[in-house]
Amino acid sequence: MTEIEADTAPALTTKGLTRKFGSFMAVDGVDVEVQEGEIRAVIGPNGAGKTTFFNLLTGHLRPSGGEIILGDLVISGRRAHEVARLGMTRAFQTTNIFPSMTVHENVVTALLGYSGRTLRFWKSPDASIQRRADEVLDMVGLSEDRGRQAGILAHGDQRALELAMALAPLPKIILLDEPTSGMSPYETQRSVQILQKIWRDLHLTIVLSEHDMEVVFELAHTVTVLVSGRVLATGEPGEVRANSEVISAYLGGVGD
């Protein structure tokens, strides 16, 4: 990882990112730098502000203060659909798909949205988009389910579809909010393999939040620990695991 850090600008930077709900500081002055091609895990106990942090990044929430910089573009204050089109896409913590559409249509719709081609009133999606959707489904292992209704898929497959929808436009950064939550050990293992393969093949930058420490240590290059909306520590997984503050604030509580 250190080689990458040396010569490239960060893919994603936040400076003093803050979000208040009333008097409650959900995210409190967070500074983060994610390098290009890095897999960054954001961990922390429940209520640490991980999901709020993600919602701020993708424009689903407006920050109360601070800046978000994607590449060299300040994106704080932009709306969710703009952030998505600028190349930072997202998979949600709770499954968020178009349930009555087919699996293939879900990805096609996503591709149309990202490319801003949804204001075409006469044309149905062209062949290149259809083909691209099939490629993406192949990547996450859903090729065989392409014609099935998305709402009736098994939970793990719905999560894979979410991933496909976030992945479809070849984004600069992909945010995964708890990508393995609610999955069986087998499904979790499969997801980790898919993510590793995607990262290798596409050289994406991935930011993920995760409860499952096994997954975190298996995937992440760098780990950021959030506690009460603040960054408690950032470092390589081994360092963070050994950090006494982290152990007492978080890892220790789980009984690791």
Partner: peptide, 10 residues
């Protein structure tokens, strides 16, 4: 079907 998702795909 899902306005939040629709927004998140641009």
């Amino acid at each position: 079907e899902n306005p939040t998702r629709a927004e998140a795909v641009g």
